[in-house]
């Protein structure tokens, strides 16, 4: 899987999670760019992403991400 495909699939997870068809993620997207992306939603997103991509993150990895692109890079290294 390439990064663009991972972004597309992650976007679908976000659309479903936030129930918002208008969400368009980019590599630079951060929590501040998405309304309602709070700490609890963040947990739900991580769980959904781990489940979807069949990967497991560490808490250290999660804390290191600055944006969606860095999260995707992490997925692609798994």
């Amino acid at each position: 899987m390439d990064k663009e495909q991972a972004l597309k699939e992650t976007n679908e997870i976000f659309v479903d999670m936030f129930d918002d068809e208008d969400i368009v993620l980019s590599y630079e997207t951060t929590a501040e760019d998405v309304e309602e992306w709070d700490s609890l939603t963040h947990i739900q997103l991580v769980v959904a992403i781990e489940k979807h991509f069949k990967v497991r993150f560490t808490s250290k990895e999660i804390q290191s991400w600055q944006n969606v692109g860095e999260m995707l890079d992490c997925i692609l290294t798994k």
Partner: peptide
């Protein structure tokens, strides 16, 4: 069913 160490969540 699942334990998510990353976010300390248990299902």
């Amino acid at each position: 069913q699942d334990y998510y160490e990353s976010v300390q969540a248990v299902v």
